[in-house]
């Protein structure tokens, strides 16, 4: 069966005045219908850029310099802008981090929803209202008839994010890209939104790409996971096996860095050092200056992403056998 989304050797560069930065350096992955994929990494690892690359909305001076993005058999990065626009928000939706910012403050929720429906579907205004109400019900918004006439500032943060999810659902997309959808929300609301996403993916058979830095969230709702570091995939595989048995030292560091219940006064774990600036990515394995197990080969040769066992586990590390 053909994959819903297939990304092959995607490379994204930013043309700056002093030269070109490689934000994404040849990543590949696939996603099937109804499958849920997590993309994990620190800030600046290229997670969000990957999301924007899929919908071909990388803002200048960035551009896709190589690779292919196949969605339902169409090569998205070669599509003309108006055809791309009919896919964006229609077959692929995106959910952003901060629901305070993603809704237009001067338009009512109803207006923003109806506008989206009308942009993609040939329906009358009253049908659009029905669709909007239906989706608001799906995301468990109480009394949607009332909410539809309200402005974003009249809703709470969790409510707003659910509205954003409802907007993403309006056109029954085949794929939702959620870019840190719960980072701006508190923990209980976070769980609520995640449950909602999970439930919707299962009932509507939607693919989900969850971009986050939180491996905890990823392990709850995704089936596959990609760990990114400085624009490259360092580890990928089934979420359960990655979380339970991380191979790459970076993944191990990330998992250790999740704060658990620890005795008062003791230090939280952190990966030493910082993600390198994209202008000065180290030679060899880009993680080696921060790595606890690096050897001399790590600073000279770039490790390839290769399968280390039979469960589709891919790891890019010289030290993992």
């Amino acid at each position: 069966m053909r994959h819903l989304l297939e990304v092959k050797d995607l490379e994204v560069k930013f043309a700056l005045w002093f030269g070109e930065l490689t934000a994404i350096d040849g990543i590949s992955f696939t996603l099937d219908r109804g499958e849920r994929l997590g993309i994990v990494g620190e800030s600046g690892a290229g997670k969000s850029v990957t999301g924007f690359a899929i919908i071909n909305l990388i803002s200048k001076p960035g551009y896709i310099s190589a690779g292919q993005i196949l969605f339902e058999g169409q090569e998205l990065n070669r599509l003309p802008e108006d055809e791309m626009r009919s896919i964006r928000g229609n077959r692929i939706s995106m959910i952003f981090q901060d629901p305070m910012m993603t809704l237009n403050p001067v338009l009512t929720i109803g207006t923003q929803m109806i506008e989206t429906v009308l942009a993609h579907e040939n329906v009358s205004k009253s049908e659009a209202v029905d669709i909007a109400l239906d989706k608001l019900k799906k995301v468990h918004i109480p009394s949607p008839e009332k909410r539809i006439h309200q402005y974003p500032h009249e809703c709470s943060g969790g409510m707003r994010q659910r509205i954003v999810v409802a907007i993403a659902l309006l056109t029954n997309p085949a794929l939702i890209i959620a870019d840190e959808p719960t980072t701006a929300l508190d923990v209980t609301i976070q769980a609520e939104i995640m449950d909602l996403l999970l439930e919707l993916c299962e009932s509507e058979k939607m693919g989900l790409i969850l971009i986050t830095h939180d491996l905890g969230v990823v392990s709850q709702i995704t089936e596959k996971v990609i760990v990114m570091y400085a624009g490259k995939i360092v580890e990928s595989g089934a979420t359960q096996s990655v979380v339970q048995d991380p191979k790459h030292p970076y993944t191990r560091g990330l998992l250790k860095a999740i704060p658990g219940i620890i005795p008062p006064g003791s230090r939280l774990y952190q990966i030493p050092g910082m993600m390198p600036n994209l202008t000065e990515i180290p030679q060899g394995c880009s993680f080696h200056p921060r790595c606890t197990i690096s050897e001399s080969i790590c600073s000279t040769e770039v490790p390839a992403l290769i399968s280390k066992d039979q469960h589709h586990r891919m790891v890019a590390c010289h030290m993992v056998k």
């Binding site: 919908i55 964006r88 229609n90 939706s93 952003f96 993603t102 942009a119």
Partner: peptide, 26 residues
């Protein structure tokens, strides 16, 4: 550069529509 403009682009709304419908009132 605010996110709601980005969100409108992601939804697939045309730039003219974003310009007068989303940016102008703000």
């Amino acid at each position: 550069n605010k996110e709601y403009v980005e969100a409108a682009r992601v939804i697939g709304i045309s730039r003219w529509h974003i310009m007068y419908r989303h940016v102008l009132p703000n």
